[in-house]
Simulated scan of single mutants.
Amino acid sequence: MTVDRAELSLTLGVEIDAELLQLALTHRSYAYENGGLAHNERLEFLGDSILGQAVTVMLYTENPNLDEGELAKRRASLVSSVALAEIAVGIDLGSHVLLGRGEELTGGRQKASILADAVEALIGAAYLSVGPDAATALVLRLIDPLLNDPERFGAAMDPKTSLQELSTRVGKGLPQYVVTDSGPDHSKRFNATVLVGGDAVATGEGSSKKQAEMAAALAAWAVLQRPRR
């Protein structure tokens, strides 16, 4: 299976090397089911660093009156898995990701963690293809829609409290969390589902129960506040 490079490159506004683009969109589940192909986690590692630097420099230069704490809060909100997944949805990235059968059947194209990782991998691929300046420009284009939502900055720092306040304000009561875990004891993964008003609103993943609940809370906050914008 090959990626429609032209369509995605047009959306991104940058010409990424075809092999690197393929690699950036190859999830490990697909790689394992197809003979142990290379997958996107190394590119994700690279892209995470480039994303963080680009956002940090932008916030520092464009907000001379903000102190370190406020800058850190804004950076956290822009590089979170929820924010990156929102970016991915905006560019329909899920339709391009290469997934294994199991992930395909369990809604992998809508999973925030998979989408966020793919965004970071694309940034890494752009860096290797066209250099640091173009990769930074790509990051700034991708996060630009998020900058118009100032409420996001507070929610990213304390998502459970922010969700509780929002849920109460809209008359849905206190959120509830259901957490499951999987994997061996030395490498467990936790998955949290948050219910608001009795309805499952969002899920989150993490290496601890706390991380999973925070990810789910931030995703649910984004869902609940969207109609109010």
Rank of each mutant, 00 (worst) to 15 (best):
E104Q: 15
S129H: 10
S182K: 13
S167E: 07
V97Y: 00
A85H: 02
L115M: 09
K111M: 08
E120D: 05
A85I: 00
R152M: 05
A192G: 01
L98A: 13
P150E: 12
T180D: 14
D144T: 13
G171Q: 09
G94Q: 06
A135E: 10
G107D: 09
I143T: 12
A134G: 12
S80E: 02
V119C: 11
R169K: 15
N191S: 13
V119F: 07
V119N: 04
Y127V: 04
D133L: 12
G183Y: 15
N191Q: 14
L163V: 03
G100R: 04
T106V: 12
F190W: 14
L78Q: 09
D133Y: 03
A135Y: 10
V179A: 07
V130R: 15
A83S: 07
F190N: 04
P132W: 11
L195W: 08
K160M: 13
A118V: 09
L99P: 01
V89C: 10
A112L: 03
A116N: 03
V170I: 15
L146F: 02
S113D: 11
R152D: 00
V194D: 00
S95Q: 14
T193V: 13
F153D: 01
D133E: 14
E120Y: 01
T136G: 05
P145M: 05
V194W: 03
P145G: 05
S81D: 13
L174V: 12
G90D: 02
A116W: 01
A116M: 02
L147I: 11
A83E: 00
H96V: 06
Q164D: 12
L98E: 10
S80K: 02
T193D: 06
A116D: 01
I91V: 15
V119Y: 08
D144Y: 15
E165H: 00
E86Y: 01
L128R: 14
Q164P: 04
Q164R: 14
G171C: 05
G173V: 02
E86W: 00
E151K: 06
E151V: 09
S162G: 03
D144I: 07
A116Y: 02
R141I: 09
L84T: 00
S113G: 05
S187E: 13
P175L: 04
A88M: 05
